[in-house]
């Protein structure tokens, strides 16, 4: 199975809250597993389930109206603990893209290392996305990594705003990795000789 990411068009799950920390994404008590698999089951565990393991009906992941491969979160998404398990859990739950107006640094790196694409949009565009999903949960959002574009569909009603799209940033190196399914370790291993030479220059 290729890990590469290119174009993703999907409906989205809206989680309109700021400062979603990685303890919410995957609580610490689920970090005892020593493999990378199966974390999706406990994604947002304490927001999704009551203490008796019954689903919380008002939480968006329990609402069949919302589904898709794109998770949309509020500003400062993924803050807190460095646990990569957060990225694993989101990916394992079937998401390929996370959209926010602001990502915490470590989470962003972790996501990229797992072929989960973090798309940073402006505050205004984020509001547009939330509004579009609220109006129509079947709204399809298109993400194109090659052109670094995220788009909402054209709206035929002339009284309303038309199609909207925005460019997003990603560094060229990471973009190449994601488009081709390369990872950083392959790259670093390929320059181990240079690293060894570099070591002699250190005191």
């Amino acid at each position: 199975m290729s890990k590469a990411i290119d174009k993703i068009s999907s409906t989205a799950v809206p989680l309109n809250q700021e400062n979603i920390d990685t303890d919410q994404i995957i609580p610490a008590r689920f970090l005892k597993v020593t493999s990378r698999d199966g974390f999706g089951e406990n994604l947002f565990r304490d927001w999704r389930y009551n203490s008796d393991n019954t689903p919380k009906k008002d939480f968006v992941l329990n609402n069949p109206t919302y589904h898709g491969k794109i998770l949309v979160g509020g500003k400062n998404f993924g803050c807190g603990s460095s646990r990569e398990h957060a990225a694993w859990a989101i990916k394992d739950a079937g998401f390929d893209v996370v959209v926010s107006s602001f990502f915490a640094d470590i989470f962003k790196n972790n996501a990229l290392n797992n072929f989960l694409l973090p798309v940073t949009v402006s505050d205004e565009f984020l509001e547009k996305i939330f509004a579009a999903i609220e109006k129509d949960p079947e709204t399809v959002i298109a993400v194109d990594l090659a052109t670094q574009t995220i788009s909402l569909p054209a709206d035929n009603d002339p009284a309303k705003a038309g199609s909207a799209s925005e460019k997003f940033d990603i560094n060229n190196y990471k973009k190449t990795c994601l488009l081709n399914g390369y990872d950083d370790i392959d790259y670093l291993l390929s320059i181990r000789g240079e690293i060894e030479k570099f070591e002699h220059t250190l005191i």
Binding site: H85, N109, L188
Partner: peptide, 20 residues
């Protein structure tokens, strides 16, 4: 600084990290 597990693997493999 703190890193994720993929980066832990990178440092184990090469004693280096890719950082901006």
């Amino acid at each position: 600084f703190g890193i994720g597990t993929s980066e832990v693997e990178m440092v184990m493999a090469t004693q280096c990290l890719l950082q901006s």
